[in-house]
């Protein structure tokens, strides 16, 4: 229950940003459309698939620990961890491409953009950045869960940590499910 309440506060954190996005998008519909062509739909789609698969592997790690198979549970958590790393690597390439084009707030190209497009990139960096931070936190929680499972502190009778790691990770996935169409699929 504690974890769910925490997830609700997270929802409101991102929810506020989604409302900001909604208003600015309605006010700058054309600018958001043209700015969105700067994003790479292929990379966004790959990252969506990566997160969905990782959501399945962490859900399966709960199944494994419930069955008492801690080795398999650790393997599945490890797979989730690798997928989170993959997400971050792809995100890194996306961000660094934007930054080298000068689209990061404060850089030359960003300053020369029409106000609507600048807003789009501002929100893009804020929202995907906050999401990436959640990915990193989620990865740390998964690593801790793996360690504690290995130590025998997480068992078939006591797997709350695995459940909470799963819930947190699914939340990260849920936020991306909305971020992806809102930023990449405006076309």
């Amino acid at each position: 229950m504690g974890m769910w309440l925490f997830l609700f506060t997270e929802l409101l954190l991102f929810g506020g940003l989604f409302i900001v996005y909604l208003i600015y998008r309605v006010l700058n519909a054309d600018a958001f459309l043209s700015a969105s062509y700067e994003l790479d739909v292929t990379m966004g789609t790959i990252n969506t698939v990566v997160l969905l698969v990782s959501s399945m592997t962490i859900a399966m790690s709960i199944t494994a620990i419930q069955k008492g198979d801690s080795k398999k549970s650790i393997q599945l958590l490890g797979t989730t961890l690798l997928l989170s790393l993959m997400f971050m690597v792809i995100k890194y390439f996306e961000w660094s491409a934007k930054i080298s084009h000068g689209l990061f707030p404060g850089l030359d190209l960003y300053k020369s953009l029409p106000p609507g497009e600048a807003l789009y990139f501002f929100l893009y960096f804020i929202m995907t950045g906050l999401h990436a931070l959640h990915i990193i936190i989620g990865a740390v929680i998964i690593a801790v869960t793996m360690y504690r499972t290995r130590k025998g502190l997480v068992t078939a009778d006591k797997y709350t940590l695995t459940e909470n790691a799963g819930l947190y990770w699914h939340l990260v996935d849920l936020i991306w499910i909305y971020l992806f169409p809102l930023f990449y699929l405006i076309h």
């Binding site: 959501s55 399945m56 859900a59 799963g166 819930l167 699914h170 996935d173 849920l174 499910i177 909305y178 992806f180 169409p181 809102l182 699929l185």
Partner: peptide, 17 residues
């Protein structure tokens, strides 16, 4: 797009979570 995203979110919450 928002409708499909919402369906996906419901599926994740209902089954995975």
């Amino acid at each position: 797009a928002m409708l499909i995203a919402t369906v996906k979110v419901v599926v994740v919450a209902y089954y995975f979570m």
